Amino acid sequence: MMKAQLAHILDVSERPNIGLRVVPKSVGFHPGLDDSFMILRMADPFGETAYVEAPGGGRLVPNIEEVADFALRYERIGQRALPEDPSRDLIKRFMEDL
């Protein structure tokens, strides 16, 4: 089952509007381990908001300062992640071990 899921991720990552970057386990602790979140860009006048996953549901975070904190966190996660091609290669090697 996991192999099929990873194959689907690789397939979807080939689309022009999808990016794939993996943070390897060897990185250790990084800001992406705390919780799941998304930054949503909406048409003006709404601008950006964040959505944070939480037990029993999530919450929208419209506060500009908090959204900026999530954007910085996203940037820091990206700094620890592999580029796209090495990310795909890592997933392929993992699939071979399954």
Rank of each mutant, 00 (worst) to 15 (best):
67 V>T: 07
85 D>V: 12
86 P>E: 01
97 D>Q: 14
82 L>T: 02
52 V>L: 10
59 R>Y: 10
52 V>K: 03
79 Q>A: 06
97 D>P: 02
96 E>P: 01
80 R>A: 15
77 I>P: 14
85 D>M: 14
84 E>C: 06
81 A>R: 03
71 A>V: 09
80 R>Y: 07
56 G>L: 04
79 Q>D: 05
57 G>I: 06
81 A>T: 03
82 L>E: 05
61 V>R: 06
92 K>D: 03
71 A>L: 09
52 V>W: 08
96 E>Y: 01
97 D>C: 11
58 G>E: 00
66 E>Y: 15
83 P>I: 10
86 P>T: 02
64 I>L: 07
63 N>R: 09
58 G>K: 03
76 R>Y: 11
72 L>C: 05
57 G>R: 00
91 I>E: 04
62 P>F: 02
81 A>M: 03
78 G>F: 14
76 R>T: 07
88 R>P: 13
57 G>F: 05
58 G>I: 00
90 L>Q: 01
50 A>T: 03
94 F>S: 07
97 D>H: 08
68 A>F: 01
85 D>E: 15
84 E>R: 10
64 I>P: 10
67 V>G: 06
60 L>P: 00
65 E>G: 09
77 I>Q: 14
51 Y>L: 05
53 E>C: 04
71 A>N: 06
78 G>S: 12
96 E>N: 01
64 I>H: 05
55 P>D: 13
75 E>M: 13
74 Y>C: 15
95 M>G: 08
67 V>K: 09
85 D>I: 14
63 N>F: 09
67 V>C: 10
95 M>S: 08
75 E>Y: 14
56 G>C: 04
87 S>D: 04
87 S>M: 09
65 E>K: 14
84 E>G: 11
92 K>A: 11
84 E>M: 11
78 G>L: 15
58 G>F: 00
50 A>Q: 05
68 A>R: 13
53 E>K: 01
53 E>H: 08
72 L>H: 10
92 K>N: 09
72 L>G: 08
61 V>G: 04
57 G>A: 04
97 D>L: 08
83 P>Q: 13
76 R>H: 15
50 A>F: 02
60 L>V: 01
89 D>R: 11
78 G>Y: 09
62 P>H: 01
73 R>D: 11
